[in-house]
Design a binder for these strands. Structure first.
Lengths: 176, 176
DNA sequence: GCAAACTGTAACTATATTGGTTACAGAAGA
DNA sequence: TCTTCTGTAACCAATATAGTTACAGTTTGC
């Protein structure tokens, strides 16, 4: 269905920020974690800032951080910020209005797709960023996170960023 | 999200067949209702036949019809037949395995996306093709449907098939 | 047997969306 | 003023879907 990873990346970015607590993160740093280009991240951060989920600061010592506490940001907020259209699309071109089915199928489908969208939204509304951080493996952030964790990731770039050849074989799961 | 109208078109096609009852429909006829090319319809009918939702007959007097009764086909069956991947995709490239968040975010997301997929599927599982036909405006099929309805649509092609220039303005709703 | 009416399918093009990349203007700290 | 950031434009690449033409093969009915 969705050929886009926008929601997954947005959740990743914001989870990283929640995990980093008050620390302001650079787009280069986030991009390293997501394994993509910093501009892709900055584009997404602009969208997230428009939806008031993050605040960014230009200039030296700038960066981005969450605009609210992790427990006050739900996955629905993130979904709405980066995935504008509903789960399914309707016909690309309108059906034949002179066919008794064609002229009516749109409203039937709209009812169904609204039900589907509501179901998705109610799942996402019940998960906060705080929950997401909590679901990361417990060993990740026990104590002294700011030093062990975020700072500890800084010097990765030369060593272990996965190379992107063979993209398909490296995707996270059978979903892609 | 989904840039595809595959699910919408598949529901349209099968609703048309349910509405036509036992009558076998030609791909040209279906394409006229959907307002697309017959080959697009035949491709989709092949997928639906693989999932045992329709049966097709080649040759003169051929065509396609439902393989089961409308009350025994759910929208979930249709969804699974034409939309293989889940609602959301994961990262296009795997995140940085040396970032404590990157290495764990995949399993967190998979949990969430499974919940979302289940919610969608449970909505779709509770709607049958018979329901969909019933939701078409009641005036559509009151009595003598086979003669008034399906046959009555046959001679449309010259008159009122919406032209496809200005595609965007003509889509069914704000979804697209 | 043969023509007509169908489906199934290959091959190609068109279109749209997303993601990746380079480049650069402008902001802000040192 | 130099450096380090964000914001953003412009472009290319990759992918998925849809539209189109063409044709082989099947079935019906004369």
């Amino acid at each position: 269905m969705s050929t886009s990873s926008r929601f997954a990346v947005a959740v990743h970015v914001l989870t990283l920020m929640a995990w980093a607590e008050e620390e302001s993160l650079k787009s280069d740093h986030v991009a390293e974690s997501v394994n993509t280009n910093p501009v892709v991240i900055r584009r997404m951060l602009c969208e997230l800032a428009e939806s008031k989920l993050v605040v960014s600061q230009t200039g030296s010592m700038g960066g981005s951080r969450l605009a609210r506490q992790p427990e006050d940001i739900t996955l629905l907020d993130i979904y709405q910020a980066v995935e504008s259209r509903g789960v399914f699309a309707l016909h690309r071109h309108p059906p034949n209005p002179d066919c008794p089915v064609g002229v009516n199928i749109g409203s039937v489908l709209n009812e169904v797709l609204d039900e589907v969208d509501s179901a998705v939204e109610s799942v996402l509304a019940n998960i906060t960023l705080k929950d997401a951080v909590g679901r990361l493996k417990p060993c990740v952030r026990t104590s002294g996170a700011k030093t062990v964790g975020v700072a500890g990731m800084r010097n990765l770039s030369a060593t272990a960023v996965t190379k992107r050849k063979n993209g398909k074989e490296h995707t996270l799961s059978a979903r892609n």
